[in-house]
């Protein structure tokens, strides 16, 4: 019995005039997957570390995120408390198991911090980014118990902590890091690239913030 799968592959091969077992073609495909050649990398982010950080901050503002730069992780809880107070938000916070966030001195603030995924009841959440991409002002976040994906989308206010040492220039710079962590060809369940707070232009083409995801995105850059 032929299946839809068989028919689909047969139809593709008929159109391409190939059998599918040509060694040359298979070699070309293996080689590309193996080498994963880089294409054109914009010049704009091929700059030194301080300039990358400056570009990242500029791009973040350009996509309506807010930012703060901190000397080290011990300053994170106070910076979060300040941010929530300044925006008239309740002093609650949800975080994952990320050891860098777990080690922050939360008890020095009046914040009510809970740990785990979000079920939709959390107003504020904090995540630790894997990297920040200067080229476009993009935060890269990886799923897992350290930083559950639901924290990136359900809360109204999303705070992202980024280590200054994890600022990269271009989008492609992320992939070697992920391959080093998970192995070539392997991925975490989710990689989220987040560039600013949620928005929609579906009503008369007017951009409005806070469609379904967070209404605010606040980025704390640590160690700069």
């Amino acid at each position: 019995m032929t299946t839809s799968r068989d028919n689909l592959f047969a139809s593709i091969r008929r159109s391409l005039h190939v059998k599918g077992d040509e060694r040359l073609r298979a070699g070309i495909v293996e080689d590309r997957l193996d080498r994963a050649p880089k294409g054109i990398i914009p010049d704009r982010a091929q700059i030194d570390a301080p300039a990358k950080l400056a570009l990242l901050l500029e791009k973040l503002v350009g996509v309506q995120a807010t930012t703060a730069v901190l000397a080290d992780y011990s300053e994170v809880p106070a910076a979060v408390a300040d941010y929530l107070r300044a925006n008239n938000l309740p002093a609650t916070l949800k975080r994952g198991d990320d050891p860098r966030l777990a080690a922050c001195p939360w008890d020095k603030t009046a914040l009510d911090v809970s740990v785990g995924r979000s079920d939709g009841g959390d107003l504020n959440a904090i995540s630790h980014a894997e990297a920040g991409i200067a080229e476009t002002g993009t935060m890269a976040l990886i799923s897992g118990p350290e930083n559950p994906t639901t924290l990136n989308f359900l809360p109204d206010n999303h705070i992202v902590v980024l280590s200054a040492t994890d600022v990269v220039g271009d989008l492609e710079a992320i992939w070697p890091r992920i391959r080093a962590k998970y192995g070539k060809g392997e991925m975490p369940r989710t990689v989220n690239f987040i560039t600013g707070p949620s928005r929609s232009g579906d009503i008369e083409q007017t951009i409005l913030l806070g469609a379904h995801g967070p209404r605010r995105l606040h980025v704390l850059i640590v160690g700069a």
Binding site: K59, T136, G137, T138, T190, V191, F193, I194, P197, G213
Partner: peptide, 12 residues
Amino acid sequence: QEMSVYTTLSTG
């Protein structure tokens, strides 16, 4: 936009 707000990669 230079990048849409959410670009999400899902694997398994």
